[in-house]
Amino acid sequence: MTILTLSHLTKRYGPRTALGDVSLSVSAGERVALLGHNGAGKSTLMKLVLGLIHADGGEVAIAGHAPGSPVARALTAYLPENAAFHPALTGREQIRHFLRLRGEPVSKAEELLERVGLGDAARRRIGTYSKGMRQRVGLAQALIGAPRLMILDEPTSGLDPVSRREFYTLLDELAAHGTAILLSSHALSEVEARTDRIVILSKGCKVTEGTLGDLRTEAALPLTVSLRPRAGQGADVAARFPEAKEHNGQWVMDFAQAQKHDVLGRITAAADQIEDFDIHPPSLDDIYAHISSKAA
Rank of each mutant, 00 (worst) to 15 (best):
A72G: 03
S69G: 06
D153W: 01
D153E: 00
L45S: 00
P80C: 03
K206S: 08
H186T: 01
Q233V: 03
K294Y: 11
N248W: 10
R12E: 06
L212R: 06
F98I: 08
I267L: 11
K206R: 15
A18F: 11
H261E: 15
G119S: 03
N38M: 01
V32D: 05
L171A: 02
V26L: 03
G64W: 06
A235L: 09
L19T: 10
D56C: 08
L221C: 03
V32W: 01
V22P: 14
M1D: 14
G39M: 03
H54W: 12
P229T: 02
L284C: 05
Q233C: 12
L6Y: 08
T128I: 10
A271T: 12
R197H: 14
Y168W: 14
V106R: 13
G68K: 01
S189D: 14
A72T: 10
P229R: 00
V263D: 02
S163E: 14
R92M: 13
K245I: 13
I62K: 02
R100Q: 07
P229C: 00
R115S: 08
T76Y: 04
Y288K: 00
M253T: 07
R228H: 14
A66V: 12
L45G: 07
L264D: 08
L99Q: 06
K203R: 15
N82T: 14
A33E: 05
S43V: 12
R12F: 06
D214G: 09
E110L: 10
D120I: 09
I198E: 11
L170T: 01
K108P: 05
D286Y: 05
R16P: 09
G20T: 13
I291G: 04
A295V: 10
M253K: 04
G36R: 05
L227W: 02
Y288L: 02
S7L: 10
R148G: 07
L113N: 00
G127M: 03
A269T: 10
H261N: 15
P222Q: 03
T10G: 07
S43D: 08
D236G: 10
A295H: 04
G132H: 02
T128L: 15
I95V: 15
R124T: 12
R123F: 13
T156C: 04
A193I: 11
A220K: 14
M133S: 08
S107N: 08
H54Q: 14
A28N: 01
Y78K: 06
H8R: 15
T268Y: 13
V237D: 01
M133E: 05
P147E: 00
M133R: 01
G51I: 05
V199D: 05
